[in-house]
Amino acid sequence: MAHLSYVNVFAKDVVALSGFYQRVFGFPEIEAIRSPIFRGLDTGKSSLGFNALDAYALLHLAEFSDTRGVKFLLNIDVDSKDEVDRRVPIAVDAGAKLVKAPYETYYHWYQAVLLDPEGNVFRINFMM
């Protein structure tokens, strides 16, 4: 069976952006795969990678490097509603922008919607 191993984010500053997710969620860095243009974090079930913009050329994606708009949504699950509420101000203090304050969805999740310091969308979720 196939499984998701990584979600990679192109980042202007891989050190700063990976550090943001480390501070907010406590994800440890996978130091064995660190390079000047990459940082990886262990999320417990899969990994979160951060590629420097140089990786566009390395991966033969240079023609797509100027895309605009929201292209993905990171979902990070936590263990309780209180944990969602606790992590939102941590994220904001670390440089995130709160887009939608914590709320209960019609599909019975409790979540907040934010933008990380580089403008990527992420949600902090608790599945009730």
Rank of each mutant, 00 (worst) to 15 (best):
I76L: 12
V121H: 12
G44D: 07
Q22I: 01
M128K: 09
M127A: 14
L48P: 10
V7D: 03
F27I: 12
H3D: 10
A62H: 09
D116E: 07
E31K: 13
N120Y: 10
A112F: 08
A96H: 04
K100Q: 15
F10W: 08
M128F: 02
D85K: 00
T67Y: 07
A112G: 11
H3W: 07
R34T: 13
V24Y: 01
F20I: 10
K12D: 14
A11K: 01
H60G: 11
A96N: 07
Y6F: 13
D116I: 05
R68P: 03
H108L: 06
E29W: 03
G40C: 15
V7K: 00
Y107H: 11
A16G: 03
N125W: 11
F126V: 08
M127P: 07
A91G: 00
R123M: 15
E118T: 06
A94T: 04
R86K: 13
A91C: 05
R68G: 12
V24T: 04
A16Y: 04
R39H: 13
E83K: 10
F25Y: 04
G95S: 05
L48D: 09
A11R: 01
S35V: 10
A52H: 15
V88Y: 09
G69W: 08
G40V: 07
G69F: 13
D82M: 01
L41D: 08
P117G: 08
L4W: 04
V92W: 00
K12C: 04
F25S: 02
L114Q: 12
L98M: 11
L115K: 10
E31Q: 14
Y21H: 05
V70S: 09
Y21T: 08
R23H: 05
N8S: 11
L74F: 09
S5L: 09
A94S: 12
D42H: 09
D13Y: 04
I124D: 03
P89M: 05
R87H: 01
T67Q: 11
F38L: 12
Y107R: 05
A101V: 05
V99T: 12
R23M: 02
D79F: 03
S65A: 15
Y106T: 09
L61K: 04
I124L: 08
L114Y: 11
L114S: 08
R87S: 07
R68T: 15
H108W: 06
K12E: 02
S47Q: 14
G26C: 04
I90N: 03
K81S: 06
Y106A: 11
V70C: 14
K12T: 10
L73W: 02
D93Q: 13
V14C: 06
D85L: 11
V15H: 07
F10E: 04
D82F: 00
K71F: 05
A96K: 01
D54N: 10
I37G: 09
Y21L: 03
V99W: 05
F20G: 00
V88W: 06
L73K: 07
F126I: 05
P89L: 00
G49M: 07
R39G: 02
D79S: 13
I90W: 01
R39A: 08
G49A: 12
A112W: 03
M128V: 14
P102L: 01
M1E: 11
D13Q: 04
G119M: 03
S80I: 04
V84G: 01
F27A: 10
A62N: 10
S46L: 11
R123T: 15
Y103P: 00
L41R: 08
F126G: 01
